[in-house]
Structure formats: C-alpha cells, structure tokens
C-alpha cells in the first residue's frame, strides 16, 4: 500500500520541482491562505490521475500483487498524505514570507480539498479517458464563481445565514467536519465498487 502511494512521488518527481515555485507564486501574490492550502493539496493527487487514465497503467497495477480495493485505498489515503505534506510545505512558505495565517484557514483549505476529492475521484473511474483536464478546468471555474455565488446566497437567503449565525463556531465546524468525513467515506466506497467492476 505504501508503495502505491510512494509511486505518485516517483512518477511526478520532475513536476514536483515546479511545486515549490508554484506555491511561492501564490504566497507572493497575497492569495488567501485557505486558497493556497487547497491549491497546494490538489497538485499531486490530481496530477497522478493524469497518469492513471491510461489503460496500460491499470493493466500494470492490476497485474501486480495488489487488489483493486488496495489500489483505490491508496488513492484516498494518498490524497490525505500528500495533503498533509503540501500543507506543511505551504505553512513553511507562509512563515518564511511572513504572511499571517490561522488554523481556520488551514481547516477551510483542507476541508474544501477533501470535499473536492470526494466529488471528483469517482468521476475518474466513471468516465473513460481524458477527464483530468475537464476536472481541473471546472475547478478553476468553480474557484472563480463560487465566492460571489456564496455571498449572493448569503444576501438573499437570510434563513440559512441566520441559522448558521445562530450556531456556535465549534458546532458549525464539527458539523462541517462530520459532513466532509461522511462524503469522503461514501466517495471511497462508491469508487471501490466502480473499480471492482471494471475490465481492462
């Protein structure tokens, strides 16, 4: 299992050199820390899928002594592992450049990342072929459209904003965390069952 996760780093070792300047760019541009955390987390796991879309890769992995369950588990666990590493590096970068960030930023960034993973990972197995590009483009569009959309909602749906405001911060965070964990678990289960039915 560990080998499957390590594999992503071996395959992407050249691209990883771009990883650090990429993050520094975001930091220097004064982007919101939560956004930087999220973008940094996305790079490795999603880039890995660009490689795994090829049929040959699946033939290779499935001919090696791995079960299909393990192959999918390595994706979901790997996403968390690489998120941890990316967040560590990003925090370091933020500290070096003396940009303030809070634990809340970190929680929001990783929460958004995990939710994004939960929604998109099954898509890689439902659709054949070049879906990575589609997902990355939709991510960028989403990142641009979502914040104004949310503030629009906040202005016009006062019932929901009132409800959220009435909750204590800790209750709100716990609730969101539980929802994300559930989403992640369901997504993992769905992807596993899709992958087990696949033919290569």
């Amino acid at each position: 299992m560990f080998n499957l996760i390590r594999r992503d780093a071996i395959i992407q070792k050249r691209q990883l050199l771009l990883f650090i300047p990429f993050i520094i760019f975001f930091i220097v541009m004064n982007s919101h820390p939560a956004l930087i955390f999220m973008v940094a987390s996305i790079i490795i796991p999603f880039n890995a899928y660009a490689y795994d879309e090829k049929a040959e890769t699946n033939i290779l992995l499935n001919s090696l002594p791995y079960t299909r369950k393990e192959i999918i588990a390595s994706r979901y666990i790997g996403a968390i592992v690489y998120m941890g590493i990316s967040i560590g590096l990003t925090s370091l970068g933020l500290l070096v450049f003396d940009k303030p960030f809070t634990l809340t930023d970190l929680a929001i960034g990783s929460g958004l990342f995990l939710a994004f993973v939960a929604f998109t990972f099954p898509l890689f197995y439902i659709f054949r072929g070049k879906i990575t590009t589609v997902i990355m483009i939709s991510f960028i569009i989403l990142a641009a459209v979502l914040p104004p959309f949310v503030s629009f909602l906040a202005k016009h749906l006062t019932i929901i904003t009132d409800l959220i405001a009435s909750l204590s911060t800790s209750a709100l965070y716990t609730g969101v965390a539980v929802v994300i964990v559930l989403l992640y678990a369901v997504s993992w289960g769905v992807t596993t069952s899709i992958y087990q039915r696949k033919a290569f």
């Binding site: 390590r6 594999r7 090696l64 791995y66």
Partner: peptide, 12 residues
C-alpha cells in the same frame, strides 16, 4: 531504474 523502484517493492 524508476520502474524498478515502483514494481520491485510490490513483490515479496
């Protein structure tokens, strides 16, 4: 070499 690093550890 890298392929060996990926495939090798898969086998006991």
């Amino acid at each position: 070499k890298d392929i060996k690093r990926i495939v090798g550890p898969a086998y006991k």
